[in-house]
């Protein structure tokens, strides 16, 4: 059962953050986790999703790789005496439909090299992305849809 699994995960997180794994503290963590899950029960019930753990792990690995690359790229760009920036905002047509997928994609885009998600259109079909180097939006779109979007779709099948 997902609810119980998430509750146990919250309990372990509680124990880790409070720094003691005694029975009392674990019980307290379980109670706090149940309380916080109860607070968000409506959103939680709506999001019944299937997860492929292995593909999710791949997504996380890709994310950390891109995050470190992105930080290095920005750092190099900053120290270059002549920054040749061609920034701009381009529209990215979303093929993901569920809210949490779009949120995840937007967050991942923000932490990858040279791109930062700014807004989602009201009908949730377009993501507006700010790029440091926007002279070829088509290539950026291809990179996102072939990278993160595909990985997210694989990790969370409908």
């Amino acid at each position: 059962m997902t609810f119980l699994a998430v509750n146990l995960l919250l309990m372990l997180t509680w124990a880790a953050v409070s720094g003691s794994f005694t029975v009392h503290n674990l019980l307290l963590g379980f109670a706090v986790g149940a309380l916080s899950l109860w607070l968000v029960r409506e959103q939680f019930a709506a999001a019944r999703l299937r997860v492929r753990p292995l593909k999710l792990l791949l997504l996380v690995a890709l994310f950390f790789k891109e995050l470190s690359l992105s930080a290095i790229k920005v750092a190099i760009l900053v120290v270059r005496p002549n920054m040749r920036l061609r920034p701009g905002i381009f529209a990215f047509p979303l093929s993901l439909t569920r809210d949490f997928e779009i949120t995840l994609l937007a967050n991942l885009i923000t932490l990858t090299p040279g791109t930062l998600s700014v807004d989602v259109s009201d009908d949730r079909k377009t993501l507006y992305v700010h790029a440091l180097d926007c002279h070829d939006p088509a290539a950026e779109r291809r990179a996102i849809s072939g990278g993160f979007e595909r990985r997210i779709r694989e990790a969370f099948p409908l």
Partner: peptide, 29 residues
């Protein structure tokens, strides 16, 4: 949280009407 706050700030600034730099090549939003 870092991407969340960046996204919120960028969205708020753009909606409030702060423009992009003159170097910018495109603004499709």
């Amino acid at each position: 949280t870092a991407p969340l706050s960046a996204h919120l700030l960028a969205k708020a600034a753009h909606q409030a009407g702060y423009r992009l730099t003159n170097l910018s090549v495109t603004d499709q939003l």
